[in-house]
C-alpha cells in the first residue's frame, strides 16, 4: 500500500506504481475537458518548496494542484539560507505551522526531502533531490511508455547519458525494473556508476549495442552546470558518439519511441529534427506530467488529516 510520502520509486512496489499510473490515466481526461478543473482538493493547500531552481517541474505541480482546486503556494527560500542544513528544517517547521496538506520538495542535495518528511506533519512529495531520485519524472515516463506501447512489461528501455549524476535515470531504473522492463544504460564509462548492475540493469559503452532491439530510448540531459566538462573530452565528441539522430535510431526497433526529461540541449543529446518530431514523444511527457502529478496529489495530499499525526500514529504502531 502507498505510504504517507512519495520520496522515491525505490520505496514503492509494483502495485503502488500501477495504482498511480491508473489514476493518472483518468486524470489525462480532465486535461482534455473545456473546464479543466475538479473540486477534489478544494480548501487544501499544496506548498511547492523549491530550494533548487526549476521552472518546468514547479509549473507542472502548480497546474496539477490547481486543476484539483487546491491552493498552491510557491515557496522559494533564498539561496543564502540554503547553506546551513539547520535552516532547511527551520523553514520546513515554519511551513508546517501553516498546516499545508502536501509539501513538494526539490533540493540539490540527496536526502533532504526525507529529512524534511521526518519533521513535517504533511505528506512530502520529492520533486528531485540531488542525484538521488525524481519519482514523478519516472512515473510520468512510465505512463508515457504505457500509453504509447500499451504495456511496459517485456519492453527494452535504453537510457543514454550521464547516469552517474542523474536522479531521473535512477528513478527510471527502479520504475521500469519494477514494471518488468529490461533496462540498458549507455554512456561513456566515467558516467556509469560502479556496481550499477546490482540494480538489475546492463551497462554498455557502445551505443549501437545498447540500442539493438530497443523499444524505448531515453536521452538524459548533459548537465554542463554540474559537470564542468570533467567526464567527457568535449561536448562535440559526446554528441558524435552518444547523441541520437535518425541514423543511430536505425539500430533500435522500427516503432521505437524517443524520450527526454527536458530541457533538451538541441544538437547534443538529440538532433534538432528528433527533438521536435516523431518518434520523439517529449511533449506527451510534459502533458502526462500534469496528469501524473494530479494523480500523486490526489493519492497523497490531505490524507493525514491532522498535523503531527505521524508522531501519534508512530507511537501507537
Amino acid at each position: 500500500m502507498i505510504g504517507r510520502d512519495l520520496l522515491g520509486i525505490e520505496d514503492l512496489d509494483r502495485e503502488d506504481i500501477v495504482r498511480i499510473l491508473d489514476t493518472a490515466e483518468h486524470m489525462v481526461e480532465i486535461g482534455e475537458r473545456e473546464v479543466k478543473k475538479v473540486p477534489t482538493l478544494r480548501g487544501r493547500t499544496v506548498v511547492n518548496l523549491f530550494f533548487e531552481a526549476s521552472t518546468r517541474t514547479r509549473a507542472s505541480f502548480e497546474i496539477a494542484g490547481k486543476r484539483l482546486s487546491a491552493d498552491v503556494i510557491n515557496f522559494t527560500p533564498s539561496a543564502s539560507s540554503l547553506k546551513k542544513s539547520e535552516s532547511i528544517l527551520d523553514t520546513a517547521r515554519t511551513l508546517d505551522a501553516m498546516d499545508p496538506d502536501a509539501v513538494v520538495v526539490r533540493h540539490s542535495v540527496a536526502g533532504v526531502p526525507r529529512r524534511i518528511a521526518d519533521v513535517l506533519g504533511a505528506p512530502v512529495i520529492n520533486a528531485g533531490d540531488g542525484a538521488h531520485e525524481h519519482p514523478t519524472q519516472a512515473l510520468l515516463d512510465a505512463l508515457t511508455v504505457r500509453q504509447q506501447k500499451g504495456r511496459v512489461e517485456g519492453l527494452t528501455v535504453t537510457i543514454i547519458g550521464d547516469i552517474l549524476h542523474s536522479r531521473v535515470a535512477r528513478s527510471n531504473i527502479y520504475a521500469f525494473r519494477k514494471l518488468g522492463a529490461e533496462v540498458r544504460l549507455a554512456a561513456p564509462p566515467p558516467m556509469i556508476p560502479a556496481g550499477v548492475e546490482c540494480l538489475g540493469v546492463k551497462a554498455y559503452t557502445s551505443l549501437r549495442e545498447a540500442l539493438d532491439g530497443a523499444d524505448v530510448v531515453m536521452a538524459l540531459r548533459i548537465q554542463n552546470e554540474r559537470l564542468g566538462g570533467a567526464y567527457v573530452p568535449s561536448i562535440r565528441e559526446y554528441s558524435a558518439t552518444f547523441g541520437l539522430d535518425r541514423a543511430k535510431l536505425d539500430f533500435a526497433k522500427d516503432d521505437v519511441i524517443v524520450m527526454h526529461p527536458g530541457p533538451v540541449n538541441r544538437g547534443v543529446e538529440l538532433s534538432h529534427d528528433l527533438a521536435d518530431h516523431r518518434p520523439s514523444v517529449i511533449l506527451d511527457q510534459v502533458r502526462n506530467g500534469v496528469a501524473l502529478r494530479m494523480a500523486v496529489l490526489y493519492l497523497f495530499a490531505g490524507r493525514a488529516t491532522t498535523p503531527g499525526s505521524r508522531e501519534v500514529a508512530g507511537g501507537a504502531g
Binding site: 500500500m1 505510504g3 493525514a304 505521524r310 500514529a313 507511537g315 504502531g317
Partner: peptide, 14 residues
C-alpha cells in the same frame, strides 16, 4: 524513519 513507515492513519484506505 520508523515512525514514517507506520504513519498511515489507521482508517485511511477504507
Amino acid at each position: 524513519m520508523t515512525s514514517q513507515q507506520s504513519a498511515r492513519p489507521p482508517g485511511s484506505g477504507t
